[in-house]
Every structure is written in C-alpha cells, then in structure tokens.
Amino acid sequence: MTLESMIQKYPASPEYLVEALRDYQMAKNDHSVTESEIVKIAKYFNVTESKVCSVVSFYSFLSEKPKGRYVIRICRDVPCFVNKSESILKTLETRLGIKPGETTPDGLFTLEYTGCLGQCDHAPAFRINDMTYVDLTPDKVKAILSEYREEKS
C-alpha cells in the first residue's frame, strides 16, 4: 500500500497524526518512516516536519530507524521479571546474536523492550509484531524463533 492511499484513510487533521503514523509503520516491512515520507505526511496533515519528527521520536512504537521484519518486544516489567524474564531475554540474545535495540544482519528480527503487555498472570511474555506469546520458557522461545525463521524461508 502506498503512503498516500494509507494516510488518506484519515481526515487531514493533526489529531490523526499519531494513529496514521502507527498504522503506516505496521504495514511496512521495516516498521519505520523515512525522511521523505515524513515530508509528505507533514504536508498532508498540515503540520511542520519538525512536529512529525517530535511525535515519532516520542512514542516507542514509532521509529525513524529501519527495523527487522519481525519486531520482538519483550516485557520486562515486574511480574515478568519475578518470573525470570531475564532468562528469556538471554535466550533471545544468544539465539539472535543481538542486544535490545539491535536488528539481525539478515533484517529478520529486531529486539526491543516494551511496557507491560497486561499478561501478568501468564508471565513472562513478549510480542512479535501483533502476536502475543505468554508463559515463555527458553525452550518455547527457541521453538517460536524457528517457526518465524521457517516462515521466511
């Protein structure tokens, strides 16, 4: 879907800026907006480019930096933490060879932290794009990662 057709679903009013940005990024494989896209979005919503940049830099779901096709957002809030989310993070780091904030060289996975996913009674939990995974163990994580790898190949 082109940028134009995507943002035109929203009225050209600044109040829809955050949502339009989020939707557009979700639809893109690299989950980010480029400089030239920011220029177009600013024009459409009739705001300054710096305003768009300020919004993008504020919210953790928005980014100017290209991300992997699958963004893994691991919850590290207290309920997950007391249920050993640390070992889940370590498994992800070892398996993917990246730290939070980084993307694998093949562009497949990005690892990030997220705020509470509300799955506290089934901690630890993470999200991959729109899917939430709960009751994680290192073994389960390994299986989930291979599933995503297979899907790609």
């Binding site: 809030d77 207290v78 309920p79 705020g115 509470c116 509300g118 799955q119 506290c120 009674d121």
Partner: peptide, 11 residues
C-alpha cells in the same frame, strides 16, 4: 491507557 505493570483489569 492501562500501563501499570501487573494490572490488567481494564483490559
């Protein structure tokens, strides 16, 4: 915008 870690009643 229920964000408190450990709370999910609003959800």
């Amino acid at each position: 915008d229920e964000g408190d870690p450990g709370a999910f009643m609003d959800r």
